[in-house]
């Protein structure tokens, strides 16, 4: 059985960094993810199919392929890299790159879950809310979001869990630099490569606990919500 005293300071640092990066990535994708999910659920915009495919791409492509695309996008000489240079922001092979890679990989999970939740709302409720004097933003905040709350939260926690374990895209854009860009997933790979099986297994145990915590939190939130609206 694993106890906290078995963990080295390095293990704790890895855990802290991984959770922080996953949390930042999840927070970063919440506003655009919810907005996009709402737009896809409510509007029949031209090019909707294309947008849907693009959003879902990270789910079906090999993560390393997504990572390479990101690398190309931010590589020397591109528009994005020049803009970031101008702002003095260095992304590639930094912690920011880890956040970016995990955010991109987690995005579809949030959008799909939130979108389904928005689609399940009876459109008449939204219409009635409009006739009661509320504009589209107010209706979204006071009716749509509270009713889609479970799906959005479930999506955010799914995205967070996905971000915790992201490997392929991260290693492409951020590398596997201990103390700088190394997350739990990357560290497990490195320790296993070096045949430090015991040290790798300690990290595996941490990830199992994290997974339990994430799933457990989801369940708890959903159940508390169900009781309140019953």
């Amino acid at each position: 059985m694993l106890t906290p005293s078995d963990l080295t300071p390095e293990d704790f640092a890895l855990l802290g960094f991984t959770v922080k990066v996953a949390a930042l990535a999840t927070l970063a994708i919440l506003p655009p993810g919810i907005a996009l999910a709402w737009a896809l659920a409510r509007w029949n915009i031209p090019g909707k199919g294309l947008v849907e495919t693009l959003v879902s791409l990270p789910l079906v492509l090999p993560p390393t392929a997504v990572g390479l695309l990101l690398l190309e996008l931010l590589g020397r000489g591109t528009l994005a890299s020049r803009l970031l240079d101008r702002l003095g922001i260095e992304v590639l092979f930094s912690a920011k790159a880890v956040v970016l890679a995990t955010a991109v990989m987690s995005f579809p999970l949030l959008v799909r879950s939130a979108r389904t939740a928005f689609e399940e709302i009876d459109p008449r409720l939204l219409g009635v809310a409009r006739t009661l004097g509320h504009g589209p933003i107010s209706v979204f905040a006071r009716v749509a979001l509270p009713l889609a709350w479970r799906g959005v939260t479930a999506g955010a926690l799914l995205a967070f869990s996905r971000a915790l374990g992201e490997f392929g895209a991260t290693i492409m854009v951020a590398g596997n630099i201990p103390g700088r860009t190394q997350t739990l997933a990357l560290a497990i790979f490195q320790r296993a490569e070096l045949a430090h099986d015991g040290a790798a297994l300690r990290l595996v145990a941490i990830t199992v606990l994290l997974a339990f915590a994430a799933v457990g939190t989801t369940e708890l939130l959903i159940r508390r919500r169900a009781r309140r609206s019953a």
Binding site: R124, G127, R130, T131, L132, G133, G135
Partner: peptide
């Protein structure tokens, strides 16, 4: 709709 002041009971 929010500016029409029409009550709707579906």
């Amino acid at each position: 709709p929010e500016r029409r002041r029409i009550g709707y009971v579906p």
